[in-house]
Design a protein around this nucleic acid. Structure first.
Length: 719
DNA sequence: GGCGTTTTCATTTGT
DNA sequence: TGAAAACGCC
């Protein structure tokens, strides 16, 4: 490990040991490097065993990367280290300790959708007006109450009106049901360890003693429970090292408390404060632009970022007619620039903006990956399987039970289901064990048989789950319930792709089992509940990445598009409050500082909402906050057409080099994303021609030759 | 109870 | 636009 590779302040941050340390790390100032060197330094130079280190990162992917970089530096086994997100570390602790709180260690982690279903049921059961108490707003309120560390009884003693009273009832019932189901929600994951430590000081002491050094990344985005968590672990020894940047605080809406970083010294006592102000990532122009923007904020810590990097290009601004035009112009730009697809990212404020861009990329055959939006594990067909697994792992999980008891149909509808629930409640049986008493439920024979069949099925797999691999079990279960036939019979593309997703899901189980020696159904469930799209993201793939600015935090690319720069969309401000606009501005700052070389800003003069009539929009105020001399405005003029023409010639050369022959009908070709296929039609000539290709997976696509980047694999391939 | 059709309503951002 | 809820018929 060569500390000479670090600048003075970075080195200072690495070598200073003892007492609280706060590092203000500006964008691109090498903070990941500091964190990895620091951990390596603790292990190698200080002699601290890895199992005494707790490091909190923002994503699981970041944790993995950090771990492998540390291994490279210390060249030793560090598998004992605790490194991960707040949520995954909390889950890990709870797996060992949760019995102290009256749950069992095979608890299930409910996602937002599960929580909402539960809340919806509770509202219904309490006979409340579902308009007045809509599940979504109640869910948001419960979450924010939890983030303030307000318990059910705390809420109960602060009731001011009818609404509060009913809310208290729902909250209370919600926590009851979670516990009965042996389930926790995302917020509980952070709250339960705190409760555990409060109630069991000797467990707290044990963990304080275990985690002799605590490191936290992205400290500006920690919320109250997260602060409590690390404070209780580290306040005894004060060996805590946090890294953050108040200018990049973008999670205020989910309870992140910027005062955690601004008041760090107050909370932990006299601390070393180190500032990393040299930016190694971006060009001078990008940094100046970003700095001019964020400097407009009032509420921020004193610092200044600088760079030795060269000036670089101006920032381009594209004006488009509407969102489709915007997408087309982006596409043009992408091909205008060097073909470093994996070094290009398209960012937007809201997930729904991805559609128009996605459509254009797909049409052009440019490979891309989308992060966020509907997550893989949230898809209906996947969630069904997950709920089967949950029921196998945990007999008490009633939300998951409800989902699969009648899927595929066993003739058990709402009426029977209600009877099951009632019987379960009045006889204090787990929802699953209630089925054992199907004969007492006063339902018709068809229903009774259905229940018994389901009971037998799950019992069988419960038993097998103790002796066989999860992937085998689920494969067999899927066969037992005839799932493939269920989808095949629908004979729609949609059903087909759903079945393909299920196959992919099983592959992901297999992969997980290969990578994890102690894999079982329960650990697999935990893994997927805490995985995000970013964690699954393949950043070495030759493809463009589309994501929200929030998802892009911590990442960097050569070329970054920031799209939808319209007032009302970015910034998305609803109520013109100063604190909101400052967070939006920080978000824009984060977006700008993702880029190393090139930034393209775009906005549309009109935009459709929900695919309805276009609404006239206005250019974002943020564009005007960038010094004019750093910006090149582009519009539809001759100059740009010329540029396109020049580019197309080189694109054609590229194709020629790649293909080594001209493409004609009947040719077999290979596409990076869609695989192998046969050209069945060609419209137009030259590199602009549109090819219709039937791929071997039965998909037929129209692609434009110059973008499709096809490999010719010969006419006789596979006949 | 099942299943197809109509209607409604939503968009910040995500662990 | 498109998914989920509500509706209505078998």
């Amino acid at each position: 490990m060569d500390l000479k590779l670090l600048n003075t302040n970075q080195r200072d941050a690495v070598e200073k040991i003892g007492g609280p340390i706060l590092v203000f790390a500006g964008a691109g100032s090498g903070k990941t490097r500091v964190l990895t060197y620091k951990i390596a330094y603790l292990i190698n130079n200080i002699g601290l065993p890895p199992e005494n280190i707790l490091a909190v990162t923002f994503t699981n992917k970041a944790a993995q990367e950090m771990k492998s970089r540390v291994v490279d530096l210390v060249k030793a086994d560090i598998s004992g280290i605790y490194i991960g997100t707040f949520h995954s570390i909390s889950a890990r602790i709870l797996r060992r300790e949760i019995s102290l709180l009256g749950y069992t260690n095979d608890f299930i982690i409910y996602d937002q959708q599960d929580s909402r279903t539960l809340i919806k049921n509770i509202i219904k059961n309490l006979d409340l007006d579902s308009k007045q108490f809509d599940a979504k707003s109640v869910q948001i309120r419960i979450s924010s109450v939890k983030n303030l560390l307000h318990s059910v009884s705390h809420v109960g003693s602060n009731i001011e009106n009818f609404n509060d009273e009913k809310f208290h009832q729902i909250y209370k019932e919600y926590q009851n049901e979670l516990k009965l189901s042996n389930c926790v929600d995302f917020d509980d994951l952070l709250l339960l360890p705190i409760e555990l430590f409060n109630k069991n000081p000797e467990r707290l002491k044990w963990y304080q003693n275990k985690f002799k050094y605590v490191l936290v990344d992205e400290y500006q985005d920690t919320n109250k429970p997260q602060f409590e968590f690390i404070y209780s672990l580290s306040s005894s020894h004060k060996d805590i090292f946090v890294v953050g940047d108040d200018d990049q605080s973008i999670y205020g809406w989910r309870g992140a408390d910027i005062s955690n970083i601004l008041n760090f010294q107050e909370a932990f006592g006299t601390s070393n404060v180190i500032k990393l102000e040299q930016n190694y990532r971006s060009t001078q122009n990008i940094l100046t632009a970003a700095w001019s923007v964020v400097s407009k904020n009032i509420n921020r810590a004193e610092k200044k970022l600088w760079t030795k990097n060269k000036k670089g290009d101006n920032l381009d601004v594209i004006e488009a007619f509407d969102e489709r035009d915007e997408a087309k112009k982006i596409l043009n730009k992408i091909t205008n620039y060097k073909k470093e697809f994996n070094e290009t990212s398209i960012l937007y404020r809201t997930n729904s903006q991805s559609r128009a861009i996605e459509d254009e990329l797909r049409k052009a055959g440019i490979p891309y990956q989308i992060i966020g939006g509907v997550k893989f594990y949230d898809r209906k067909e996947i969630k069904d399987i997950i709920c089967y697994i949950r029921v196998i792992v945990n007999s008490n999980d009633s939300i998951s039970f409800d989902r699969v008891i009648n899927f595929p149909s066993r003739g058990i509808g709402n009426t029977s289901l209600n009877k099951i629930h009632q019987y379960s409640k009045s006889n204090l049986l787990s929802i699953f064990e209630t089925l054992k008493h199907a004969d007492n439920l006063q339902v018709n024979n068809k229903q009774t048989q259905g229940m018994k069949a389901f009971y037998k099925l799950i019992t069988h797999y419960k038993k097998r789950s103790k002796e066989d691999k999860g992937s085998n079990i689920i494969r067999d279960l899927i066969k037992d319930i005839n799932l493939q036939a269920y989808y095949d019979n629908q004979k729609t593309d949609d059903a087909l792709s759903r079945w393909e997703n299920i196959e992919e899901f099983i592959s992901s189980m297999v992969e997980y089992e290969i990578n994890n020696k102690n894999a079982d159904l329960s650990t697999f469930l935990e893994e997927i509940s805490l995985l995000t799209d970013i964690d699954r993201w393949n950043d070495t793939d030759e493809s463009i990445t589309l994501m929200t600015v929030h998802s892009a935090k911590g990442l960097e690319f050569n070329q970054v598009f920031i799209t939808g720069l319209e007032d009302g969309l970015f910034p998305i401000v609803r109520y013109l409050e100063d604190s909101d606009i400052e967070e939006e501005r920080r978000l824009f700052y984060v977006a700008l500082t993702r880029s190393k070389k090139k930034i393209i800003l775009s906005y549309a003069k009109s935009r459709r909402k929900f695919g309805s009539e276009p609404i006239i929009t206005m250019k974002s105020r943020f564009i005007a906050e960038i010094p004019e001399e750093l910006i090149t405005f582009e519009s539809n003029n001759k100059l740009e057409n010329n540029k396109n023409y020049n580019y197309n010639v080189s694109a054609l050369n590229n194709i020629k080099n790649n293909c080594a022959s001209e493409i004609h009908i009947g040719e077999n070709v290979e596409h990076k994303v869609f695989g192998k296929g046969k050209v069945i039609n060609i419209e137009g000539i030259g590199d602009n021609s549109k090819l219709t290709i039937k791929f071997y997976n039965n998909m037929t696509k129209k692609l434009i030759l110059k973008y499709a980047n096809l490999k010719v694999i010969g006419e006789n391939y596979g006949k």
